[in-house]
Amino acid sequence: MLYLLSVVQLIFVVVFAPLVVGVFSKLCEIFESKQGPSIFQPYYDLYKLFRKQSVVPQVASPMFQIVPYVTFAMYLFLTLVLPIITGFPLSFGPVVDFIGGGLIFGAIAGLKKLAAIDSRNNYSHLGVSRASSIGALSEPILVLIFITFGVITHTNNPYVVNNVLQTSTSWYLSLVHWFVVFAFFMALIVETGKLPIESHTSNEFGMIDQAIEMEYSGRELALMKWGGYIKQFLLMSVFLNDFIFPFFVPMKVSLVAVLLYSLIHLVKLFVLVLIFATIQSTISKYKLFKNFEYVAVAFSFAFLAIVVFYATGGRL
């Protein structure tokens, strides 16, 4: 049963990840009073890219070609261990906890950066240096958030976090939890490359993550993009299920409940995407060096969560 559900979850994520992105860009266009592309546009893009020829820089080493496959596989692995449509651990669930998941995300980012440096493209190098300097500051935020969760639930297991928040109203309403939610939301904007931090236009002033996959083409580019979609999907799901709205997630093993919840989960995702799209179309981009101030504020929220815990008399 658990194996079956794992497969269901894998397929669910891989299939619907591009859809979320499609909805997001459609909403952004609607906010700008344009008609916008179809919400299935990302699928068309991927289909097209898979049929295209790959071009590899002459100077690149074999790693450049391997990285897209490896990272895609790692994303697929992550989909198996996070609570996305189930509130109980699936077969691979016990393999890693939050910290482990964070490490795998970090490993993916590291591999991508290495490959980007390997491509010897100037813009890629620029993107790598920017992503690294922001990442160096935003990683501690995530670590702090996970530590706070450790404080709340005495564990770093995302499933347990989900269950605790779902069942305990006092934790759900506590100030500690909401500081964490806000900090993670700010970190989420950094991680998914949304507006005050990064704008996806074709000029190099604002690009960060976008520049990293500059030299890829054809199937490799498709995998990189798809991986990116999955990353966004996973982070959003984690934000929904472990932070802001942990309700309705089935805590008992039941195929019907899980299938039903996967529809609810899509609705939750679309609401979140609507929020993101609203932010995207109301806020202007920060100057690059002001990103660090943004990160500093996010860091303060994460840290304040712990201070709140102790200042209100919390004990481990």
């Binding site: 002001k290 660090f292 101030e293 500093a296 504020v297 860091f299 303060s300 840290f303 304040l304």
Partner: peptide
């Protein structure tokens, strides 16, 4: 600078 002052404030 702003970043520093935020962190110091914290």
């Amino acid at each position: 600078s702003t970043g520093t002052s935020i962190v110091v404030s914290l």
